[in-house]
């Protein structure tokens, strides 16, 4: 990791000096833990007036493999979306600079480093966030309502996927993985029979709005991060994804991210101009979101069997059964409605 830091330190210093007004250099460059699809670096730009806390989001080794899932946007697009979201009042880390080829450190961008916490375990349990927790679901609704108002004519080219498209896409992936899951078949069948009407208006959708991608402070929601799989789709997808059981981290009775109620989420959404929320429509997306996670777990098992011998991958493969129990509780509840 030290060698890796040295390899970008010089070029990053040059880029920062050229493009961040007042910057004289950089300090405290560190690679933060991040997904396989991105590198996240923390550093400070030094100026005569003091330090500017910054983040570099960069493709692994400098270049994003867009073939990874076929759904990730380029880092340039991600930077553009963050700026568009900022314009409509979504809390985001402002983008300071988008790297160009001339900088020589690959694709990526520099944005502000917002202080706060993304780890659900801490947000849901620590005293520090006790005052934030009751406010979060409503704030999430308000922020999503704004996010969904970004003018479509301003958007960079994005994947367009309605609910029906996503059901088809994941059904195809499921069939290709070729392992029988009767509960998944039942869920696919239910989704095909209960798809929302085709004429519904599609908007910018964040696509991964959940614990882990939300920067939370003691005062509440501070920033929406990780716009990597943003696309044009059904806005209800964003309201339901944060409600699927895996994102509740054990707080099963707090459907919104383990911290709040659907009533608060929907009230915030409607109050901020997001339009009337139909709980049945959100349920469609909750079933689809749960099923998507289940199919992703199958994908992990498949990758393991094809030679990626990570024990972690193998055990995630055995977590598709978690989504099966969630799907059964949604589709064939043992008691009255949840």
């Amino acid at each position: 990791m030290a060698a890796e830091t040295n390899s970008i330190s010089g070029l990053l210093t040059d880029a920062v000096k050229r493009h961040i007004p007042g910057a004289t250099g950089i300090a405290d460059l560190r690679r933060l833990s991040g997904g396989a699809s991105q590198e996240i670096w923390s550093f400070d730009a030094t100026t005569e007036a003091g330090m500017i806390p910054l983040i570099l989001r960069r493709a692994p080794g400098g270049f994003r493999d867009t073939g990874r899932s076929g759904t990730a946007v380029t880092l340039e697009t991600e930077a553009k979306l963050i700026s568009l979201a900022e314009e409509v009042g979504v809390p985001v880390p402002p983008v300071r600079y988008v790297l160009t080829e001339a900088d020589g450190i690959g694709q990526g961008f520099i944005m502000d480093r917002i202080p706060g916490e993304t780890l659900a375990r801490k947000i849901l349990r620590d005293e520090e966030f006790a005052n934030a927790r009751p406010k979060l679901a409503r704030q999430c609704g308000e922020v999503l309502a704004k996010l969904h108002t970004v003018e479509k004519s301003k958007l960079p080219p994005l994947r367009i996927a309605s609910g029906r498209d996503e059901v088809e896409q994941y059904f195809k992936t499921y069939k290709e993985l070729d392992y029988p899951h009767p509960v998944f078949e039942l869920a696919f069948r239910w989704l095909k029979d209960n798809a929302p009407p085709g004429e519904m208006e599609l908007t910018l959708v964040h696509g991964d709005f959940r614990n882990g991608n939300l920067m939370i402070g003691p005062d509440g929601l501070r920033a929406v991060l990780d716009w990597e799989i943003a696309h044009v789709g059904d806005p209800m997808a964003d309201l339901s994804w944060i409600c699927i059981n895996p994102w509740r981290f054990g707080n099963i009775d707090m459907p919104v991210g383990g911290f709040g109620t659907r009533e608060d989420l929907f009230a915030g959404y409607e109050a901020a101009g997001g339009g009337k929320v139909d709980p049945a429509h959100v349920k469609f997306w909750e079933v689809l979101g749960t099923l998507k996670w289940g199919v992703m777990c199958m994908g992990m098992a498949s990758a393991f069997l094809q030679g990626d011998r990570s024990v972690e991958r193998a055990t995630i493969g055995r977590r598709s059964s978690e989504t099966e129990v969630d799907l059964m509780r949604l589709l064939a509840p043992l008691t009255g409605r949840e």
Binding site: N251, R318, S321, E322, E324, V325, M328
Partner: peptide, 16 residues
């Protein structure tokens, strides 16, 4: 079938 799978895979899972 689902309950049995969870009893093996993840008996502490909240949904189970």
């Amino acid at each position: 079938t689902t309950l049995t799978k969870l009893a093996i895979d993840q008996p502490n899972y909240s949904g189970y």
